[in-house]
């Protein structure tokens, strides 16, 4: 009988990513309701030393797969190892992050474990001993409650949504031998090009400063970047700005870009097309700065300023400087 809540914790360059603590905390909550243990699996190279840290967030046992083949994430190697561990231990629930890596890994695991998964969830609960997941669809234009019948019941969790809760557990470290079949590894990473900006990624940012058609051109974004740097924020863009070539595709927020849920989303010169609103309306607080008081963005905003963003944003930056 399947038992226990498992997570796959994500690390990069030998440090856990914050989302790993979010899913550990969410797993603890579910396990407490079920009266079960939380186990985490972590893969990497030379990472045994960090494994026990997960105990702080409610993990009872940490399975460590330490191998040079796991230094960087590759689908082949990670899926092989996690599939083996899950089949051997038969957990009832398996949670992963809906990060770029977690989405790739979790989706392939659905295939290798022949189960079902609720992706990119924003809430989880137990009902009648079963996992019920809440997740947005249509980029947030609708929500669905999903029940998984397969085993394990899988869910990937949207970063930045689940609170990090400290609750000390043993965090007992157990070595896991993945017995990798090297012949089955078909992909390799041949290059890693780090982004020069050093800014936090949109889907993980606590604050996003975003610009649309009202920025008038690529130069306009300089004032947003200045404000973003001060707030430790990511810089986003509307589809109009990306299609105009002002900003890279990776910056696009909306139904055909990224769906984000920061604490604060500052929309500058964004009118609020429905596909954009879908991508950011789960933000905790929304600020809209726009000259056009009729712009649909104001209907979603907690705070609105009807004025020229080129006057307001530099003043905002100056004000923020005073208090930080």
């Amino acid at each position: 009988m399947a038992k226990g809540v498992w997570i796959v914790a994500e690390q990069r360059d030998g440090a856990f990513r914050k989302v790993s603590f979010e899913i550990a905390s969410a797993a603890r909550k579910l396990a407490d309701e079920l009266g079960d243990e939380v186990s985490a699996m972590v893969l990497g190279s030379g990472i045994e030393g960090i494994a026990a840290e997960l105990g702080k967030y409610g993990v009872d046992k940490v399975y460590v797969a330490d191998d040079p083949a796991f230094e960087k994430y590759t689908t082949d190697a990670y899926v092989q190892a996690v599939t083996k561990a899950v089949k051997e231990n038969d957990p009832a629930i398996l949670l992963l992050a809906a990060s770029v890596e977690g989405k790739d890994l979790s989706s392939r695991l659905v295939g290798s474990l022949a189960t079902g998964m609720a992706s990119d969830c924003t809430d989880l609960r137990i009902e009648g001993g079963k996992l019920i997941a809440l997740r947005p669809m249509y980029a947030g234009k609708a929500f669905a409650e999903v029940e998984v019948d397969g085993s394990p019941q899988m869910a990937s969790l949207r970063p930045n949504v689940f609170p990090v809760v400290e609750s000390a557990k043993a965090g007992e470290v157990v070595k896991f031998d993945p017995a990798l079949d090297a012949a089955a590894l078909k992909t390799k990473i041949v290059d890693v090009q780090k982004d020069a900006s050093g800014r936090v990624e949109l889907t993980e940012a606590m604050v996003i400063v975003s610009g649309g058609r009202g920025m008038k051109g690529p130069e306009g974004y300089q004032i947003l970047e200045a404000l973003a740097d001060l707030l430790g924020a990511a810089v986003g863009a509307s589809r109009a700005a990306v299609d105009a070539g002002w900003r890279p595709q990776t910056d696009q927020v909306g139904q055909t870009g990224k769906v984000v849920s920061p604490n604060l989303y500052v929309a500058c010169g964004i009118s609020g097309a429905i596909q954009h609103l879908a991508g950011m309306s789960s933000s905790k607080y929304i600020v809209a700065i726009n000259k056009d008081e009729e712009a649909p963005i104001f209907a979603k905003a907690d705070y609105g300023i009807v004025d020229d963003l080129f006057k307001i944003v530099p003043e905002l930056t100056a004000e923020v400087k005073k208090i930080l």
């Binding site: 079902g116 947030g140 999903v146 998984v148 929304i286 979603k300 905003a301 907690d302 300023i305």
Partner: peptide, 22 residues
């Protein structure tokens, strides 16, 4: 065709409270 993940219920997104103009 036996589903492994099922939508139990769909619902509209939560309404946002009206905001204020600064």
């Amino acid at each position: 065709v036996a589903a492994k993940a099922k939508i139990v219920k769909m619902m509209p997104p939560p309404e946002r409270a009206p905001g204020k103009i600064v």
